[in-house]
Design a protein around this nucleic acid. Structure first.
Lengths: 112, 112
DNA sequence: GCAATATTTGCGCGATGCTGCAAATGTTGT
DNA sequence: ACAACATTTGCAGCATCGCGCAAATATTGC
């Protein structure tokens, strides 16, 4: 009874939950993608001022993008002296992307 | 010479290319996610009118969302009589999501 | 406390996005 | 050709987003 057979509705709900708009919203802007790409290549956290170069926009804009990415769980911030250094949550991000793919795959397997 | 050693820049570019904003833009709207989730549970293509129920918005809006999803390569459309039936490109979508995760992973492995 | 440096936040502007309504387009059957 | 049904597109309103500039906040060193 704890397993009333997986209904189509169940995996649909699971997929709907896995595909969280907030995450994709974080990755749908070119500037944010370039920030993520930049952070991905650095093991050590990077200061905001070092990210400005790869973005082509003002300090403030970069800071805002980073805030959004942080709120989406994509990056983490730690203060170090005067500067705030950001790092990419690679593992978490990979996991979420793969979980989305898995949920999708499971749905379509079950459907067909 | 064809392999000048993989620079950090190379995987950064690869990741930047893998994380195509257009795809994520397609998935950053709740209505579109529900459409994708709905289509994922159906092996056979679904008509627009059958998708309206799960969206809570007007016909026209659903049609527009489907257009955007189609342009992003997420769904495919085929006309069948009066109606146009949409189906999810599950395999392609899975592949893109996993490719993103792989590119990300490769970058962070190379970095650290 | 003050100046210097690094980042965040407030504000306003222009661009983009989502929506409903109505009109246009495509398709079938009479 | 015409009516009925399904979908798409044009239009306008409203919200949200991304941006630069300037002001505010945080931290360090004198």
């Amino acid at each position: 009874m704890s397993e009333p057979a997986p209904l189509p509705t169940a995996c649909e709900a699971a997929l709907s939950a896995a595909l969280r708009p907030a995450l994709f919203k974080a990755l749908c802007d070119p500037v944010r993608v370039s920030i993520v790409a930049r952070l991905a290549t650095r093991q050590d956290p990077v200061a905001v001022s070092d990210l400005v170069a790869c973005c082509g926009i003002d300090f403030s804009g970069v800071s805002r993008h980073l805030k959004l990415l942080r709120q989406a769980g994509v990056v983490s911030a730690t203060r170090e002296g005067r500067s705030v250094r950001y790092s990419l949550n690679s593992d978490a991000l990979c996991q979420v992307l793969r979980a989305s793919a898995d949920a999708l795959e499971q749905c379509s397997e079950q459907a067909g």
